[in-house]
Simulated assay, not measured.
Amino acid sequence: MVKETGHKLIAQNRRARHDYHIDETYEAGLVLTGTEVKSLREGRASLVDGFAHIHDNEVWLEGVHIPEYSQGTWTNHSARRSRKLLLHREQISRLIGKTREPGRTLVPLSLYFSDGRAKVEIALARGKREYDKRHAIAEREAKRDMERALRRRR
């Protein structure tokens, strides 16, 4: 048996960085069934509607779509079930305090394999207003225009 090493990205939530101000990020393990892991190894998952919440001092991931495994039988999982996240007790306590503040939420940023284990990067985030989003787009375009102008000068 060969031990898997490295970092293999499965899915990313690019929309989260557009819709939220990211304050802190955490790496969490996932409690998965066998068919979910096999489906993830095929590189199939979507974090688009995903969010995390805290219930009974445990962190749960909701709305993440991991499609059913194609060779799965009656043991197959449901695609959008709740999945428990594995974090240290101190991290959970910190998140409980932070998410009680108004406007704070937990959003998944990426789903990946790290040394053969499925991990999710969750972020403590604040929602952006519409004018914040427009401002960020304008800054990005201005930076792109400046770089383009500098390249032309050379």
Rank of each mutant, 00 (worst) to 15 (best):
S93N: 11
S93M: 05
L124Q: 01
R117G: 11
T99I: 08
W60Q: 02
K3T: 09
A149S: 12
I10K: 02
L61N: 03
R152P: 11
T33G: 14
R81G: 15
K84R: 14
R151D: 15
R17H: 10
L106A: 01
G29N: 07
R126V: 15
S93I: 05
R153G: 08
A138M: 04
A16G: 07
K143Y: 08
A125T: 02
A11Y: 03
Y69Q: 01
E4K: 12
D23K: 12
Y112R: 05
K133W: 04
A125K: 00
R140C: 07
D132V: 11
E68C: 04
H55Q: 08
S46D: 13
H88A: 15
R100I: 04
K38M: 12
L61W: 06
L86H: 06
R83A: 07
I66S: 00
A16C: 13
A118Y: 10
E42I: 06
M1D: 07
Y69C: 01
Q91S: 15
K143A: 15
P108Y: 02
T105M: 07
T99F: 00
T99R: 00
T35S: 05
E62C: 11
Q71K: 15
R41W: 13
L86T: 12
N76I: 14
E139P: 05
Y26P: 07
V64W: 03
G97W: 07
A11T: 03
E24H: 04
G43L: 04
V59P: 03
G34S: 06
R17F: 13
G43H: 05
G116N: 09
M146Y: 10
P67I: 04
E36R: 03
T33R: 06
R151T: 14
Y112Q: 08
A28W: 08
E147A: 10
T5Y: 09
V37R: 05
L106Y: 01
K3D: 09
M1Q: 07
P67F: 02
L40C: 10
G103A: 02
E139A: 08
D115N: 08
R153W: 09
R89M: 13
E27C: 07
S82Q: 12
M146G: 05
K84P: 09
K8H: 09
R81P: 11
E68K: 00
D23M: 14
A149V: 11
V37M: 10
M1W: 04
L111Y: 05
R44S: 04
R17C: 12
L109S: 00
I137L: 09
R144D: 07
S93A: 10
L106S: 01
L86W: 07
T33M: 12
F113V: 08
R126C: 10
H65V: 14
Y20H: 03
F113I: 12
R144K: 07
E147I: 09
V2C: 08
L9V: 15
A79H: 00
D56Y: 01
R94D: 12
K3Q: 11
N57F: 12
V120Y: 03
N76R: 06
D132Q: 13
I22H: 00
E4F: 10
S39W: 04
